[in-house]
Amino acid sequence: MSINWYKYSAPATFYGLAGRLVPWFGGAAASLTVIGLYLSFFVAPTDFQQGEAYRVIFIHVPAAWMSMFIYLVMAAWAAVGLAFNTRLSFMMARALAPTGAMFTFVALWTGAFWGKPMWGAWWVWDARLTSELILLFLYVGIMALWAAIDDPRRGDKAGALLALIGAINVPIIYFSVKWWNTLHQGSSIKPSGTSMDEVMLAGMVVMAIAAWFYTIAVVFVRVRRIILERERHTEWVKHVLEGA
């Protein structure tokens, strides 16, 4: 049984599929968040150096991972859209940006709230922090560009181009702790393994997966709305609107 994936690249089919999946992803995100929070506060031990302050790791790291990963997925959809001129790809890129910007803001905020007690400063012009701030400006810039250009097709291409150009910033963020002598600590999860306590690691990974499911649910809801707006004149959207 081979699945005809192209069938789902048609907005009408994807609209139905995404609609059916949203509650599942939303439910999974909510339950994993509850488990993750339980691990974070009631199972994970006190850190011998940072005491309880380290518990911010359970949202700071997943948010930072998501901020980078969502940007790459957005840039990938932008590339697919530019290469194949497929409308749905641009819609997916547009649907991803706000959630990516939210996670970037959360990563910066939680980082500052962790940095203040540990480093004594809310903000330092450190390579990791500065490149993450640039990531936020990129997200906002791309969303502003999409909002500014009325013609959807032209707007898609302009935003997609900026998304692609900005993608170089993601590896810079990721490797900044290795390339420069940064105040921000190096990555504690490396291919060679990790020095982290299992439960701390488990809490962080559960929260990261919850963030994944949350992102999929939110982006599907947002892209379905964009599909309705863009495909307004089609029969199937008129049918959906009568039903709604």
């Binding site: 005491g51 309880e52 302050a53 959630t99 959360v106 939680t110 709230f113």
Partner: peptide, 25 residues
């Protein structure tokens, strides 16, 4: 628990803002 070992402001300030950001979205 709320004192969070003296880091309550920082830990709850982080978790509360995250919850707020998600709720707003």
């Amino acid at each position: 628990f709320w004192a969070m070992g003296g880091y309550g402001l920082y830990v709850w300030g982080s978790f509360a803002m995250t919850a707020l950001a998600i709720a707003v979205e």
